[in-house]
Write a protein that binds this DNA or RNA. Structure first.
Length: 222
DNA sequence: GCGACAG
DNA sequence: ATCTTGTCGC
C-alpha cells in the first residue's frame, strides 16, 4: 500500500478518460532490451472473478528461473470496479494486480502477463501498462488475438511469425507446443520482441502456456 | 450501417 | 472471465 507502486494515477475513470490516459502513458513504453543481467525470479500474473463478476481475484506466482519452481505467491480480492471493455482491460485488472505484487516478499525481475502488451489498438495493452507503472520488464502473452493479422505458422515448437497491424509488427504468433493453438506474444516494457519470444519459450517448455501463467491462473481461478 | 472485439 | 457434460485423441 505504501509503495509508490500503487497510486501512480487515478483508477476511477470513464472508458473515455481511460483511453485518453493510455495515449498519455504510451510514450513511456520502452521496446528495447533493458533487463537485469541475471534474472532469477520470473512472475506470472492472472485475474479471476467470483460472485458473478462482483469480486476480482488477482494472483501473482513467482518462479525461480530456470528451474521454474514456485518460490512465492500472493492472492488479493477486491470489489470489481470497471467493466470489461476490449482495449481497456488494464483498468479492470491492474488495481488488484498491483496490490498483489506489493504483497510479495521480493519483486520479480520479469513478469509475464495474461493479456497483450504492444499488440493493442493503441499499442498500450495491460502488459505495457503494468510495466510502465512498476518499471519492471513485462511480456504480454495472449491466448487469442485482439488486433493484427498473420500468415501460416509452422507446426514445430519454437516457430513464430510476426503479428502485423497497420503495416507494423506489433507482436509474434508463437508455437509453444506442437498440435495446439499458438499464443500471441508482444512486448510489454523494457525488452525487444525477439527477447520476449525467447523468454516465453523458455518459460513454456511443455505446455501451451508458460508455467508462470499456469501457476498464476491456478491461484486466481482453479 | 456492419462486423470485430485481450480477459 | 464465468456458467457447465461429455467427448475425442495422444
Amino acid at each position: 500500500m505504501g509503495l509508490a507502486l500503487c497510486h501512480q494515477h487515478r483508477w476511477d475513470l470513464s472508458p473515455k478518460e481511460a483511453a485518453n490516459l493510455q495515449a498519455q502513458l504510451r510514450p513511456l513504453v520502452l521496446v528495447e532490451d533493458a533487463l537485469p543481467a541475471e534474472i532469477r525470479a520470473v512472475a506470472g500474473v492472472d485475474v479471476g472473478f467470483e460472485d458473478q463478476g462482483r469480486t476480482t481475484r488477482a494472483a501473482v506466482a513467482v518462479l525461480e528461473f530456470p528451474s521454474l519452481r514456485l518460490t512465492d505467491q500472493a492472492i488479493v480480492r477486491q470489489p470489481t470496479r470497471f467493466p470489461y471493455v476490449p482495449g481497456l482491460l488494464s483498468f479492470r485488472e491492474l488495481p488488484a494486480l498491483l496490490e498483489a505484487l506489493e504483497r510479495l516478499n521480493r519483486l520479480p525481475e520479469l513478469i509475464l502477463v495474461d493479456g497483450h502488451g504492444y499488440a493493442h489498438p493503441r499499442r498500450f495493452g495491460i502488459a505495457c501498462h503494468l510495466g510502465v507503472l512498476t518499471g519492471i520488464p513485462t511480456i504480454g502473452v495472449g491466448k487469442t488475438r485482439l488486433v493484427g493479422t498473420h500468415g501460416d505458422l509452422g507446426e514445430e515448437r519454437g516457430r513464430w511469425i510476426p503479428l502485423i497491424d497497420r503495416e507494423e509488427t506489433i507482436g509474434a504468433v508463437v508455437r509453444t507446443r506442437r498440435g495446439v493453438q499458438p499464443v500471441y506474444v508482444s512486448v510489454g516494457h523494457r525488452l525487444s520482441l525477439p527477447t520476449a519470444v525467447d523468454w516465453v519459450l523458455s518459460c513454456a517448455p511443455r505446455y501451451r502456456l508458460p508455467e508462470t501463467t499456469r501457476q498464476a491462473h491456478r491461484l486466481a481461478s482453479g
